[in-house]
């Protein structure tokens, strides 16, 4: 379970503070499927990076399975990323010089698994994303959808309970994007928690719950079924009020 309380993330930019997150509160149950939406710069990726222990909050508390991550050392956080979290990125982040199989093996190298076991598990993972026949190919020999499936195999090979995907279909056409989403959906159905950052209402619609971020705050929580189009989410009266409030605050400062 993910528990986030009054989470702030502030960047220093040329002498003045930039608040990427302003007091986010959220609880994500194990096994749930959450989408995070919002315009560019609303803090979606910042929130995802914090949930993935890649970044640490300026203020507030993040508890992962009851453990306050602020109390953990760098090595302990690396251990969490290794065993309990799988990242999926918009730009895939495959290592270009390594084959698909070697890319999937990568986390297991850092986990210190035996080469034989590594290979076996990587092969199984590639089979599960339907890429067994591409094991020896390098990323530049794979299509976008294939690359993302390799990345998903890499993210799941250590058996994490939490998958964090940042615009997983952002670089894919709709057909291969749908394949990737089906794959993610299947992984969720197997019991994993899935948090997806997206611009695409079609992606968000698959989630149980959608968090809408604006200027670093969660402005709406809706169910996936309620997502129809971007307009309905971002142009609500409530949202507009928030924006004008902030404008007033800014002028006040």
């Amino acid at each position: 379970m993910i528990e986030v309380e009054d989470l702030w993330r502030t960047y220093e930019m040329g002498g003045h503070a930039l608040h990427a997150l302003r007091g986010v509160n959220e609880v994500i149950e194990d096994g749930s499927h959450v989408a995070i939406m919002g315009p560019s710069g609303s803090g979606k990726s910042t929130l995802l990076n914090l949930l993935g222990c890649l970044d640490s909050p300026t203020r507030g508390q993040y508890k992962l399975a009851g453990q306050d991550v602020a109390e953990l050392s760098g090595d302990a956080l690396a251990e969490i990323r290794l065993h309990r979290i799988g990242f999926i990125f918009q730009s895939f982040h495959l290592v270009p010089r390594l084959t698909a199989l070697q890319n999937v093996e990568l986390p297991m190298i850092f986990a210190g698994l035996h080469p034989g076991e590594r290979r076996e598990r990587a092969e199984v993972a590639l089979v599960s994303v339907d890429l067994a026949d591409r094991a020896g190919h390098r990323p530049n020999e794979l299509s976008g959808g294939q690359k993302q499936r390799v990345a998903i195999a890499r993210a799941t090979v250590m058996g994490p309970g939490l998958l964090l995907a940042d615009e997983p279909t952002g670089n894919l056409d709709s057909r291969t994007g749908a394949q990737v989403l089906d794959l993610l959906g299947r992984l969720h159905d197997e019991g994993r928690t899935l948090v997806v950052v997206t611009h695409d209402p079609g992606v968000a619609r698959r989630a149980d719950r959608v968090l809408v971020l604006r200027d670093g705050e969660i402005v709406r929580r809706v169910s996936g079924d309620e997502v129809t189009d971007l307009g309905s989410l971002f142009s609500s009266v409530e949202d507009a009020d928030k924006v004008s409030e902030q404008a007033v605050q800014k002028v006040g400062r």
Partner: peptide, 16 residues
Amino acid sequence: SAEVGLLKAIGATRRQ
């Protein structure tokens, strides 16, 4: 650097 970021994201420690 992107590769280093990835290695960190998939759980490599600083020492590694």
